[in-house]
Amino acid sequence: MTETTHVEPKLAPVAISKQAVACLAGWMIPGAGHAVLGRYGRALLIFTSISLMIVLGLAMHGHLYAPGELDTLFAFKDVLSKVYLVGQMGMGVVHPLLRVLKVGVEFQYKQPTYEYGTHFLVVAGLLNFLAVFDAFDIAKGRKA
C-alpha cells in the first residue's frame, strides 16, 4: 500500500522592511501585499474581487465619505458616517483618487441603489483591511 505524505510548507518570516512594504502596498492597492510576497494567485483574486466591488458600488451610486465633509470629526456625532469613512479608508489610494476625480462625491440618496452602493464601498475597504492583515501574517511566517 502506498502512502501519500502531505508536506507542510516551511514558514519563515521575511525581512522587516519587506513586511512593511507588503502591508503598505496591500493597503494602497488591493492584493499588492500578496504579490510582493509572491502569492500571485491570491493577489489576483483579492484585486479582482475588491476592484469589482468598488466599481459596482460606484455604479450603484454609492457615496465616498471624506473627513472634510464631516463637520465634527472628533465629536460623538454622526457616528455612522465616521464608521463608513474608516471602512472606506481601507481602499487605500483608490479612495482619495476617486474623490479627486469627483467620482462618488455627490450624495445621491434618492437613487434606489444608493444604500447598496455605499455598503459595497465600505465592505470593499474592510475586505482590503483583512487582506492587509493576512499579508502581514504571511510576512511574519505565521501562514503559508
Binding site: 483579492i46 474581487s49 447598496y116
Partner: peptide
Amino acid sequence: LVMIVFAALVSVVFAAITNEAN
C-alpha cells in the same frame, strides 16, 4: 441579485485569506 453578487465577491476574498485551507 445584489445579495448574490455581494456574497460571491466576499466569499472569494474570504477563500483567498483563510487559514483553514492549505
